[in-house]
Simulated assay, not measured.
Amino acid sequence: MAENKNGSYTQQYLDRAKQIISVVEKQETIIQEVAQLFANSILEGRMVHLFGSGHSRMMVEEMWPRYGSFPGFNPIVELSVSFHNLVVGSNGQRQAMFLENVAGLAKRILRNFDITDQDTALIISSSGCNVLPIEMAEEFQKKKVKVVALVSSLHLKGSSSKRTDGKKLVDFADYVLDTGAPLGDAMIKIEALDTPVAPGSTLGGVLLINTIKAEIANILVQNGKTPKVLSSGKIIGEQKAIDLFESAYDEHAHNMAKLYQNLGNRN
């Protein structure tokens, strides 16, 4: 086996991970601003809409619902652009990547919800160049909804928009968060392999999602709204954990009901 002069590939990736942590750390001020924006929606009894296609779907699920998370978020996940496990054949990756760049799909998705200007939105796209997430942000802004874009800035700057007008996700965002991942996302070059491996955008995205989540939780508590956090029975006891899950899901259902009760009346 050839000796790797730059150290083990494990160590290389961990070193790159530390750089990503540094990028996220430098965004603390905007993280707090975004958290306040989202908390305001939740305190008003409205929702923070989450959207990501492709692997960006993972950031949606990282925010809600999972352990350590709480109601207040509407995870918009379209299986047609995020159901990847079959890879080929029916519902395969080729179709998903095609649909990500079909104009007009975003508007049809959002037609399902009664959205107000008290809502907010988080749109996740590493490149910020596919049509669907760009149009999602554009449609939200048309409804006077503040939009936060979560992108990989270096990848976005080095990529071309799939829209005919050349606009990218950040052109329809009020706030922009950067995962710190490099152009092309993959961070490690293997000797004798032309293509790098081991991406970093998910790592940076998870850091951003959870720092925002923690800040939101604090703001809610400070404003007298204790969030119903999905928690492990190993920490709080099995029955309390079950009760929290049930009440959190009920709260989510009640929040979602508001998105349907006046549907069509504002159009």
Rank of each mutant, 00 (worst) to 15 (best):
G158F: 15
I190R: 00
L132H: 03
R163E: 00
L169W: 10
M136G: 02
S160R: 14
S125C: 06
K157V: 15
R108F: 12
G128A: 03
E138W: 11
D114N: 11
D114M: 11
S126Q: 09
A149S: 11
L110V: 01
S153D: 13
L105H: 12
I124W: 09
R111T: 09
S127W: 06
G180C: 04
V131H: 04
A192V: 14
A137R: 00
E191S: 13
L193T: 09
G166R: 06
E138S: 14
S160W: 12
K107R: 12
K142N: 14
S153V: 07
D185H: 11
L193H: 15
T179G: 12
E139K: 11
D171L: 11
M187C: 08
D178Y: 13
D178E: 10
G166Q: 03
V176N: 13
R163F: 02
D185C: 13
V147N: 01
I115T: 07
L150D: 06
A198K: 05
K146G: 07
G184Q: 02
L183F: 15
D174W: 05
K167C: 10
F140R: 06
L132A: 01
V147W: 02
F113E: 01
S153I: 09
S160Y: 08
K143H: 07
V170F: 10
A186P: 10
N130R: 07
E138M: 14
L154R: 04
P196Q: 08
L193I: 12
L110I: 00
H155V: 06
D117F: 14
V176H: 03
S153K: 15
I115W: 14
A181V: 02
K143W: 05
L105T: 14
P182A: 07
Q141I: 09
E135F: 00
V131S: 02
F172G: 01
K107D: 11
T164Y: 06
I115R: 08
L150A: 10
A121C: 12
T195N: 02
S161A: 01
E138P: 14
L105C: 03
N130L: 10
S152W: 05
A192H: 15
D174R: 13
T120W: 12
L183H: 01
G166D: 04
L150E: 04
D194V: 14
I123V: 15
Q141H: 01
Q118T: 12
K144T: 13
T116Q: 10
L169H: 14
S125T: 03
V170L: 05
P182M: 04
D174V: 05
V151P: 03
P199L: 09
L169I: 13
I124G: 02
T179M: 06
A198T: 11
I123N: 03
A106W: 00
A137H: 00
K142V: 02
E139I: 07
A149K: 06
S161N: 01
S153F: 12
I109G: 01
V131R: 00
V151T: 11
L183K: 04
S127T: 12
Q141C: 08
D171I: 05
V131K: 00
G200H: 07
M187Q: 02
V151I: 09
K167E: 12
I190W: 13
I134P: 12
N130D: 04
P182L: 04
G158S: 12
L132S: 02
T164M: 10
A149G: 11
E191V: 15
P196L: 00
L156R: 00
S153A: 03
